[in-house]
């Protein structure tokens, strides 16, 4: 019998919450440990196996020159690279710096700013190396993670739909919070995958899975104004975990279908190079 595939988990600029989702797979964790050899996962174990790795899960964004080098080495040693979470797929909430002066932040936040080496922008992994699949979310969805690992183990393409959260609200029978309660909701422009969690608890989607395959932000913001939001509130609702991705998708002149379509049997996202 051949050796089990190796799984590595890597952290870049992030809060660790997405990695913890893997440890949080209580019912499946033993099965995962039985199906793969966890070769590099510092959050769980200091035991490290040298690469190459069959699958790498990459959390976090690139915010330093050192990390920009490190992700290339991770890519070189990984057969399949899957980015996990809003930091890795969109730059995360720390990409708010992309639209401000990072020098100002550094001088105000740190007592010894000269010790802090950082890049002006927080960028997603796909801006640096080719990425095979993206798991969106802040944090990622546990079921999507397990299903993706199961798909990769079986050698089939993971089911990662890029349609709107509205599909999932309707499938689970949640009445639209925007229509029935007037609550602003990013669901119509946000990628599915969470199971439409927030609207099921009576609140609007805040877009933690990032832009859906198609985004018509002008039409949605026009409706937000009808619901009573002012310009500052509208800018703010888009400026959270996926600020850079929503900015790119909502910039005037952005292509109508901003995300690459999924290629059957082919890696889903390979933006760099």
């Amino acid at each position: 019998m051949s050796a089990p595939p190796t799984l590595a988990v890597w952290k870049f600029a992030s809060c660790d919450g997405c990695q913890l989702t893997l440890l949080d797979c209580e019912d499946e964790l033993l099965q995962i440990a039985g199906a793969v050899r966890i070769a590099h996962f510092l959050e769980a174990s200091r035991a490290v196996v040298e690469g190459p790795y069959d699958v790498s899960l990459v959390e976090g964004s690139i915010t330093t020159a050192a990390d920009a080098d490190r992700i290339r080495r991770v890519r070189d040693r990984s057969r399949i690279l899957v980015t996990i979470g809003a930091c890795a797929t969109a730059g995360g909430v720390q990409a708010l710096r992309n639209f401000a002066d990072v020098e100002e932040f550094r001088s105000v936040v740190y007592a010894k700013p000269e010790y802090v080496a950082t890049l002006a922008d927080s960028t997603p992994i796909a801006a640096h190396v080719p990425v095979d699949y993206e798991l969106r979310g802040c944090p990622i969805d546990r079921t999507q993670l397990v299903n993706t690992l199961a798909a990769l183990l079986a050698g089939r393409r993971p089911d990662l739909p890029m349609h709107s959260v509205c599909f999932e609200c309707k499938r689970r029978g949640t009445p639209c919070v925007m229509v029935a309660k007037g609550i602003p909701c990013l669901g119509p422009v946000t990628a599915a995958g969470c199971g439409a969690l927030c609207p099921a608890y009576g609140r609007g989607c805040y877009g933690c899975f990032g832009p859906a395959a198609t985004v018509n932000a002008d039409a949605l913001t026009a409706q937000f104004r009808v619901l009573g939001m002012d310009q500052a509130e509208i800018e703010r609702i888009f400026a959270t975990f996926n600020v850079a991705a929503f900015k790119a998708a909502t910039t005037p002149g952005a292509p109508e279908e901003h995300a690459a379509p999924a290629f059957l049997g082919m890696p889903q996202v390979r933006r760099a190079e």
Binding site: A150, C166, F167, R171
Partner: peptide
């Protein structure tokens, strides 16, 4: 918005796709 709500609430829209699942073993 191309969000699909109209088709989901329509009492006659019937389109489907399939999804495959495998377990970890």
């Amino acid at each position: 918005l191309s969000c699909g709500n109209c088709t989901m609430v329509c009492p006659t829209c019937f389109c489907t796709s399939v999804e495959d699942t495998t377990d970890l073993t």
